[in-house]
């Protein structure tokens, strides 16, 4: 589904990603871990096509199509969803109106029903839909809002950037269960890339692969056992 080949990325002429390779197949769950400043968030932004992030070399392929130069809205439409670490706030725009603006089917009745159903699943109070987008939301509420949008957009590849930050344990469980359910529903078509600091995450979700990213490269890949090692020894063991 996603193939990243020998990727070099710079922002403001600073090279951040330095020769990164990654392959995610349909139905796979990958976890990427790494110390601060190793290029984790940059990786998620560049896949989503964020402006000002410049690809110096290499390729990103999604379903065998090069997406290096695609605009972010086009990338989104191919079925790539990014759950932001720090979602933006938009004053004066209700959450409902925002969500409505990217829903394809314009049947108002069903839209609302559909959103309500998903809110229930995620324990989101319906009142939030009429509130301004993320304004005054707690960290956890913002993350729930991200996942609500994911469930509505039905992406093929979901990237979770620090989904655990700002979430209490119950909310985290709830969110991860919803994501798992979503992936498992059409296992052959949906994949997941989790970017995190949080080693405990394997208690809730079983990855097919775990990678360690450092200095813009993936320096170690393995299965879930790798996380146990990171927990035990820290990143330093792998860096040296």
């Amino acid at each position: 589904m996603l193939k990243i080949k020998n990727l070099y990325v710079s922002i403001n002429k600073n090279l951040i990603i330095k020769g990164l390779n990654l392959k995610i197949k349909k139905g796979e769950i990958h976890i990427i871990m790494g110390p601060n400043g190793s290029g984790k968030s940059t990786l998620s932004y560049i896949i989503a096509g964020k402006p000002k992030y410049k690809i110096e070399d290499g390729e990103i392929l999604f379903n065998n199509k090069i997406i290096n130069n695609l605009k972010p809205d086009k990338i989104s439409k191919l079925g790539i969803f990014l759950s932001f670490q720090n979602p933006v706030e938009i004053d004066g725009l209700s959450m409902y109106n925002f969500i409505k603006s990217f829903i394809k089917k314009k049947n108002n009745n069903n839209i609302l029903k559909n959103i309500y159903k998903k809110c229930e699943k995620l324990n989101i109070n319906k009142k939030y839909l009429s509130r301004y987008f993320n304004l005054g939301f707690s960290g956890g509420e913002k993350k729930k809002n991200e996942i609500l949008q994911m469930l509505i957009l039905k992406p093929k590849l979901t990237i979770l950037d620090e989904i655990d930050s700002g979430l209490d344990i119950d909310s985290l469980k709830n969110i991860l269960n919803n994501i798992k359910q979503y992936i498992n529903k059409k296992k052959k078509k949906r994949s997941l890339l989790i970017i995190t600091h949080y080693t405990n995450i394997i208690n809730y979700i079983k990855p097919n692969f775990v990678h360690i990213i450092y200095d813009g490269k993936i320096i170690k890949s393995g299965n879930k056992k790798l996380i146990k090692k990171i927990e035990k020894y820290g990143y330093n063991k792998f860096i040296n």
């Binding site: 972010p72 809205d73 989104s76 969803f81 933006v88 925002f98 990217f102």
Partner: peptide, 28 residues
């Protein structure tokens, strides 16, 4: 903010519509 536009883009909303959403919020 470019962040706001990018966020909208990431949900499949093009630049014109993103601007219009943000401005209509501002003038609501």
């Amino acid at each position: 903010e470019e962040e706001q536009i990018f966020y909208c883009n990431q949900r499949g909303i093009d630049n014109d519509n993103a601007m219009s959403l943000i401005v209509s919020g501002f003038s609501m």
